[in-house]
């Protein structure tokens, strides 16, 4: 039972992959999952609801300093950066955008890699900018496992190809393979 946390980053074209992954996970899936997903600036509400429709696990936009619990999915709120802090809780911030993005995938990945080290699985999905590439490198360098969605399957391949170029990537998987992999993880 080496891995205990999962962080997923994505942008343009990732919504479908994320919903498919979430709907495939059983209620008994205990590893907390962090989602750092870019979204349209004005779409501030309704995203959790849209993701929740088919998910069997509860999805929340965490409040600042919220404790991380098993079996929960944490979605970075619109217009906030989401950090994982030592001590198993989440912190939010409204600092300026990084890579034109808030939430920034990199910032969430850096902090998760720092907090969870080799217990972390980092996954980068479809997206139109390079956010997440450097974050995934941190996950790899801290001893975590890295997965990138197969660029051939992505609606927009910029994010995944940047991640593959920048980080040591353990697996390049299609959405189906990602799901298969997650379902095989010992809980």
């Amino acid at each position: 039972m080496k891995y205990k946390y999962i962080i997923i980053g994505g942008s343009a074209g990732s919504f479908q992959a994320v919903t498919r992954i979430l709907e495939s996970l059983p209620k008994t899936f205990t590893m907390p999952i962090f989602l750092a997903l870019h979204r349209l600036k004005h779409v501030r509400t309704g995203f959790v609801e849209a993701l929740s429709i088919k998910s069997k696990l509860p999805i929340v936009e965490p409040v600042d300093k919220e404790h991380i619990k098993q079996g929960k999915i944490y979605l970075a709120p619109a217009n906030y950066h989401m950090y994982i802090e030592l001590g198993n809780y989440i912190a939010l911030s409204t600092e300026e955008a990084v890579n034109h993005s808030r939430p920034s995938i990199d910032l969430s990945f850096y902090s998760a890699a720092f907090a969870f080290k080799e217990k972390l699985i980092g996954i980068i999905l479809s997206g139109a900018n390079k956010d997440g590439a450097s974050g995934l490198k941190y996950v790899a360098d801290a001893g975590g496992l890295t997965i990138v969605q197969n660029p051939d399957e992505c609606q927009v391949r910029t994010m995944t190809t940047a991640a593959i170029k920048t980080a040591r990537v353990d697996y390049i998987y299609t959405t189906d393979q990602i799901i298969e992999f997650l379902l095989k993880l010992p809980q």
Partner: peptide, 9 residues
Amino acid sequence: YSIKSFTRR
């Protein structure tokens, strides 16, 4: 101060 955001600053 919150350590992650402070360090970022």
